[in-house]
Design a binder for these strands. Structure first.
Length: 281
DNA sequence: CGCTTTTGACCGGCGC
DNA sequence: GCGCCGGTCAAAAGCG
């Protein structure tokens, strides 16, 4: 698959052995995870504008697998997403999947915490739900989505924070090898714009770039004050760029996120979203 | 008719 | 070695 080509590790997959789970918060919540030891140490993010909810490695190890229930009572939902536990499980699943047929070792994972009333946040891609499971940590079930693109192996995990039902934790695994679909259900260009804004910067062409697809502007959610730290307010058309720091990563920092609303154009949307190099289908 | 969603069962890994 | 948990697959049902 060309997916590998798009992978940050491009065949090299600097797989230390464990994926790093990182939830970043601060002004907006963005979590990202990379199989490879991303140079842009989280320290930088946490040190200044971002606060890693968890340690890249610690999250996986400490919270590794069985300690997801009562072992680690998250004092704060935003700081302790259940994802941590799934990290190990996810790895297991990954291995399993590899055995099944696909060789999906450890795809980059990005977790987003969004305050929204809807679980499935539209990010411009088409997703098909393939499973739902109840998690021990949360009374809310976790939904598993897979990109409808047969060539795309990107998966998405959606769950609500056990502590904050209003918070939706979306975890993306892998990278899209295709362009964002026009719009699922005739969605407004705003969605695409938002997605584009992020994806454009986070297409993950390189290990230093992330993509924040979970951007939907037309969602019935509650508006949190700008003071809300950990959560990424869903309704952030324009605030997007404001709330959104220049970039969660040093690399991205150089590229200011375009205004979602301003990018409603969509002409070069796809072009921008996915680079020719990482395009697959 | 095709696609998506839903639900249950099964598999694999990890911890105890 | 057993149990628990998470993740994925497969079949069926519903909806557009």
């Amino acid at each position: 698959m060309d997916d590998d080509a798009a992978m940050p590790g491009s065949g090299t997959e600097n797989v230390p052995g464990e994926p790093s789970w990182t939830f970043v918060g601060g002004g907006d919540v963005f979590g990202y995870d990379f199989p490879a030891p991303s140079p842009f140490d989280l320290a930088d993010l946490a040190g200044d504008r971002y606060h890693p909810l968890e340690s890249p490695a610690a999250s996986v190890r400490s919270v590794g697998s069985s300690s997801s229930e009562e072992t680690e009572p998250p004092p704060e939902p935003e700081e302790k997403p259940p994802e941590s536990s799934s990290a190990s499980a996810a790895a297991a699943a990954a291995n399993k999947g590899a055995k099944k047929g696909q060789k999906r070792s450890r795809q980059p994972r990005i977790a987003f915490m969004t305050k929204s009333e809807i679980d499935h946040l539209e990010d411009g891609y088409r997703w098909r739900k393939y499973g739902q499971k109840a998690v021990k940590n949360s009374p809310f079930p976790r939904s598993y989505y897979r990109c409808t693109n047969s060539k795309c192996t990107v998966k998405k995990r959606v769950e609500r924070s056990s502590d904050d039902p209003a918070i939706v934790i979306t975890t993306y695994e892998g990278q899209h090898c295709h362009h964002i679909v026009s719009f699922p259900r005739g969605g407004p260009a705003t969605v695409g714009s938002a997605a584009r804004s992020l994806t454009d910067h986070l297409s993950m062409p390189t290990p230093t770039q992330l993509y924040f697809p979970s951007l939907h502007l037309n969602i019935p959610n509650r508006t949190i004050g700008p003071g809300s730290s950990l959560l990424h307010q869903t309704p952030l058309p324009r605030q997007l760029q404001q709330q959104l720091p220049p970039a969660p990563l040093p690399e991205l920092t150089s590229s200011p996120l375009p205004t979602a609303t301003a990018t409603s154009g969509g002409e070069g949307l796809l072009d921008d979203i996915v680079r020719p190099g990482m395009r697959n289908g």
